[in-house]
């Protein structure tokens, strides 16, 4: 494993500063000895990980490596069997979770109009305004569909709405679980653009994908999971040029990774 203790060394750590909200910074993220068991199987098995304060981290790995599980554990939707997750100096809590947003692989949309899906979150965060809603919808190219029932949108539009709703929470960390799976290239391009823009505006991105091309386009660093552990965590260029782990080499070469 390439320098698992400080994988972001070349990108650099951002000094812990106040985030302007008066709360302690969420990053860096430190995960130690994380385990998750289900049905007698260790699906996450002693995972260690550190993520710095900026950039887009791509989480890759074969099916069953534990990518989606890791995201849910980091967000606190499920509890680990063992191990620790620290966002900044704080353990995972509801308050920490409120400063993150998770976009699910399969969009979960309220049975309401497109605009009402955004309004729900804005009201929840005490920031309801038609202007803000329209701005978010415009950002994801859905302003013209604001009054449409959300469930009548296409797959790509539904995912863009999910993304807009996540951004409505003004997250410091955006966790994305294969948001472009099964989408056409145009939708993938749109969503990648939104994610890159969010990253540029200072949102820390953790993006799960199977798509090697997408990982090349987006990644500042790559976390490669295999059998519930971090097999490799490298700066993007290094990962794609000279993958250190055998599993990553096989994965990038299109060979079956067991």
């Amino acid at each position: 494993m390439r320098d698992a203790a400080h994988p972001m060394g070349e990108i650099g750590w951002i000094a812990a500063e106040d985030d302007g909200h008066g709360a302690a910074p969420l990053l860096p993220l430190t995960v130690r000895g994380l385990c998750y068991e289900a049905g007698g199987r260790k699906l996450i098995n002693g995972l260690d990980l550190e993520l710095g304060a900026q950039g887009i981290s791509i989480v890759m790995g074969p099916n069953g490596a534990g990518k989606s599980l890791l995201l849910r554990l980091l967000h606190g939707l499920i509890s680990p069997s063992a191990g620790q997750i620290s966002w900044g100096a704080a353990p995972l809590s509801a308050r920490v979770r409120q400063r993150q947003a998770l976009v699910f692989q399969k969009p979960v949309l309220l049975r309401r109009s497109v605009g009402d899906n955004i309004d729900f979150v804005l009201r929840l965060r005490g920031r309801a305004s038609a202007g803000r809603r329209d701005e978010l919808l415009s950002r994801v190219g859905l302003l013209g569909l604001a009054s449409q029932p959300a469930r009548l949108l296409s797959g790509g539009e539904q995912q863009r709405l999910s993304l807009a709703r996540a951004l409505a929470t003004e997250p410091e960390v955006l966790l994305l679980d294969e948001p472009t799976a099964s989408l056409d290239p145009a939708s993938v391009h749109l969503i990648e653009g939104i994610v890159v823009d969010a990253g540029r505006s200072g949102v820390r991105i953790v993006f799960v994908t199977h798509d090697i091309g997408q990982a090349r386009r987006l990644a500042d660093d790559v976390v490669f999971l295999h059998r519930g552990r971090v097999a490799e965590h490298s700066v993007s260029q290094d990962f794609f040029r000279t993958p250190a782990s055998e599993a990553a080499r096989d994965f990038l070469a299109g060979r079956i990774v067991l």
Partner: peptide, 10 residues
Amino acid sequence: EYDELFRSLS
């Protein structure tokens, strides 16, 4: 259906 979304949004 909404459970994970609601928990995610607290």
